[in-house]
């Protein structure tokens, strides 16, 4: 409504301007300015919370970033069947399977300020940081270990049921909806 009014106002000023024999270009600038003001306001406030993606360790993941972000659920699901039901535990070159949850955790475990690995009930946990944002509940860690083996700090409960979403305030995270859209630009299905 406000936008509409603004445009009307611009047009009326355009009319008024031409009547007063002002150059048309000035009126045009005023029109553009009114639009850009509107856009800037939406971008600032309305696009939702931002998420903080943990920094890369420098080692490369099994797939390029954009691919692993899109394909990791299928990879995990595929390789869990291979490993558990068929006993395939490695690739032909002897390395871990690409969809090895253990390997994901070993590389991506995040430490807190006290140098302890954060557990799944912590928003900083690598998996949680995105899945909470996307409101996707992951069951993996009801059974699977959520931090590398050898570390023994306890986690409370799995999943996000107890996550406090009230703490999520717009603008407090580092990534916007727009950024998320850029991360996963193709919304094509992986099902074939």
């Amino acid at each position: 409504m406000w936008l509409q009014l603004n445009i009307n106002f611009s047009f009326s000023s355009l009319l008024k301007g031409s009547l007063q024999k002002l150059p048309l270009s000035v009126a045009g600038l005023a029109l553009m300015a009114s639009f850009t003001t509107v856009n800037a306001e939406v971008e600032q406030d309305e696009l939702g919370p931002r998420i903080e993606i943990p920094e890369s360790s420098g080692k490369s993941c099994v797939l390029p970033e954009d691919e692993i972000r899109r394909k990791h659920p299928d990879m995990l699901k595929h390789d869990r069947i291979l490993t558990l039901r068929e006993g395939v535990r490695a690739k032909a070159d002897g390395n871990n399977l690409d969809g090895s949850l253990k390997q994901c955790i070993n590389c991506h475990a995040i430490k807190d300020d006290n140098d302890q690995y954060v557990r799944i009930d912590n928003d900083k946990h690598f998996c949680v940081s995105c899945h909470k944002y996307a409101a996707v509940t992951i069951d993996c860690f009801q059974c699977h270990r959520d931090i590398p083996e050898g570390s023994s700090n306890f986690h409370a409960l799995s999943g996000h049921k107890n996550t406090d979403f009230s703490s999520v305030t717009p603008g407090s995270y580092g990534l916007t909806v727009k950024d998320m859209a850029n991360i996963a630009p193709e919304v094509s299905s992986d099902d074939k």
């Binding site: 270990r145 306890f154 986690h155």
Partner: peptide
């Protein structure tokens, strides 16, 4: 019951 600290 809910378990914690499972073996990998």
């Amino acid at each position: 019951e809910t378990l914690t600290d499972q073996k990998t």
